[in-house]
Lab assay of single mutants.
Amino acid sequence: GTEDLKEEAKKALKKGDKERAKRALKKAGLSEDQIKKFIKEVL
């Protein structure tokens, strides 16, 4: 589900894998702006 994808994105970001995080967030249905915001909040 969406929460799982967001968790996956957080883990990817902590490993420095932004591309993987972006893919997971796109799958979760987030827009580009939401993805940028999510990444900023996590990092």
Score class of each variant (00 low, 15 high):
Gly1Glu: 13
Gly1Lys: 11
Gly1Trp: 14
Gly1Arg: 11
Gly1Asp: 13
Gly1Thr: 14
Thr2Asp: 11
Thr2Lys: 10
Thr2Phe: 13
Thr2Gln: 11
Thr2Arg: 10
Thr2Ile: 14
Glu3Ser: 10
Glu3Phe: 08
Glu3Arg: 08
Glu3Asp: 12
Glu3Val: 09
Glu3Met: 10
Glu3Leu: 10
Glu3Gly: 08
Asp4His: 11
Asp4Lys: 12
Asp4Tyr: 13
Asp4Val: 11
Leu5Glu: 04
Leu5Lys: 03
Leu5Gly: 04
Leu5Asn: 04
Leu5Asp: 04
Leu5Met: 07
Leu5Tyr: 12
Lys6Asn: 04
Lys6Arg: 10
Lys6Asp: 03
Glu7Met: 09
Glu7Asn: 10
Glu7Val: 07
Glu7His: 07
Glu7Cys: 06
Glu7Lys: 08
Glu7Tyr: 06
Glu7Leu: 09
Glu8Pro: 01
Glu8Leu: 11
Glu8Met: 10
Glu8Tyr: 12
Glu8Phe: 11
Glu8Ile: 12
Glu8Ala: 08
Glu8His: 05
Ala9Gly: 02
Ala9Met: 03
Ala9Val: 08
Ala9Asp: 00
Ala9Trp: 03
Ala9Phe: 04
Ala9Lys: 01
Ala9His: 01
Lys10Pro: 01
Lys10Arg: 15
Lys10Met: 12
Lys10Trp: 09
Lys10Asp: 02
Lys11Trp: 10
Lys11Met: 12
Lys11Thr: 11
Lys11Ile: 13
Lys11Phe: 07
Lys11Ser: 11
Lys11Tyr: 08
Ala12Pro: 02
Ala12Gln: 06
Ala12Asp: 05
Ala12His: 11
Ala12Glu: 05
Leu13Cys: 06
Leu13Asn: 01
Leu13His: 02
Leu13Ser: 01
Leu13Pro: 01
Leu13Lys: 01
Leu13Glu: 00
Lys14Asn: 09
Lys14Ile: 14
Lys14Arg: 12
Lys14Met: 14
Lys14Asp: 06
Lys15Ile: 14
Lys15Tyr: 11
Lys15Asp: 14
Lys15Asn: 14
Lys15Pro: 01
Lys15Arg: 13
Lys15Trp: 09
Lys15Thr: 12
Gly16Pro: 02
Gly16Lys: 03
Gly16Glu: 02
Gly16Leu: 04
Gly16Phe: 04
Gly16His: 05
Asp17Gln: 09
Asp17Tyr: 06
Asp17Pro: 00
Asp17Val: 02
Asp17Met: 06
Asp17Arg: 04
Lys18Ala: 12
Lys18Asn: 11
Lys18Asp: 09
Glu19Ser: 07
Glu19Gln: 08
Glu19Leu: 08
Glu19Asp: 10
Glu19Cys: 06
Arg20Phe: 11
Arg20Asn: 10
Arg20Gly: 15
Arg20Tyr: 11
Arg20His: 11
Arg20Ile: 07
Arg20Gln: 12
Ala21Asp: 00
Ala21Tyr: 02
Ala21Trp: 03
Ala21Phe: 03
Ala21Pro: 00
Ala21Lys: 00
Ala21Val: 04
Ala21Met: 04
Ala21Gln: 01
Ala21Asn: 00
Ala21Gly: 03
Lys22Asp: 06
Lys22Asn: 07
Lys22Cys: 07
Lys22Tyr: 15
Lys22Gly: 05
Lys22Pro: 00
Lys22Arg: 14
Lys22Leu: 15
Arg23Ala: 15
Arg23Gln: 14
Arg23Met: 11
Arg23Phe: 07
Ala24Met: 15
Ala24Lys: 05
Ala24Arg: 03
Ala24Gln: 07
Ala24Asn: 06
Leu25Ile: 01
Leu25His: 00
Leu25Met: 02
Lys26Trp: 06
Lys26Ile: 12
Lys26His: 09
Lys26Tyr: 09
Lys26Thr: 10
Lys26Gly: 05
Lys27Met: 12
Lys27Gly: 05
Lys27Gln: 12
Lys27Leu: 13
Lys27Trp: 05
Ala28Lys: 02
Ala28Asp: 03
Ala28Arg: 01
Ala28Tyr: 05
Ala28Pro: 00
Ala28Gln: 03
Ala28Gly: 04
Ala28His: 04
Gly29Thr: 01
Gly29Leu: 03
Gly29Asp: 02
Gly29Ala: 02
Gly29Met: 03
Gly29Val: 00
Leu30His: 02
Leu30Ile: 03
Leu30Ala: 02
Leu30Phe: 12
Leu30Val: 02
Leu30Ser: 00
Leu30Gln: 02
Leu30Met: 12
Leu30Trp: 11
Ser31Asp: 11
Ser31Lys: 05
Ser31Phe: 03
Ser31Glu: 05
Glu32Gly: 06
Glu32Gln: 07
Glu32Asp: 13
Glu32Lys: 08
Glu32Val: 08
Glu32Met: 08
Glu32Trp: 09
Asp33Asn: 09
Asp33Gly: 09
Asp33Tyr: 09
Asp33Phe: 07
Asp33Ser: 11
Asp33Thr: 09
Gln34Val: 04
Gln34Ser: 06
Gln34Glu: 15
Gln34Asn: 05
Gln34Cys: 05
Gln34Arg: 03
Gln34Met: 08
Gln34Ala: 10
Ile35Trp: 02
Ile35Val: 06
Ile35His: 00
Ile35Leu: 03
Ile35Pro: 00
Ile35Lys: 01
Lys36Phe: 10
Lys36Asp: 15
Lys36Thr: 12
Lys36Ile: 14
Lys36Arg: 12
Lys36Cys: 06
Lys36Glu: 15
Lys37Glu: 15
Lys37Ala: 14
Lys37Gly: 08
Lys37Trp: 09
Lys37Ser: 12
Lys37His: 11
Lys37Leu: 13
Lys37Gln: 15
Phe38Asp: 00
Phe38Cys: 03
Phe38Lys: 01
Phe38Val: 03
Phe38Pro: 00
Phe38Ser: 00
Ile39Pro: 01
Ile39Arg: 00
Ile39Gln: 02
Ile39Trp: 04
Ile39Tyr: 04
Ile39His: 01
Lys40Tyr: 15
Lys40Glu: 15
Lys40Gln: 14
Glu41Val: 06
Glu41Asn: 09
Glu41Phe: 07
Glu41Gly: 07
Glu41Thr: 09
Val42Glu: 08
Val42Asp: 03
Val42Ser: 07
Val42Gly: 05
Val42Met: 10
Val42Phe: 15
Val42Ala: 10
Leu43Arg: 05
Leu43Asn: 06
Leu43Phe: 08
Leu43Ile: 09
Leu43Trp: 07
Leu43Ser: 06
Leu43Tyr: 09
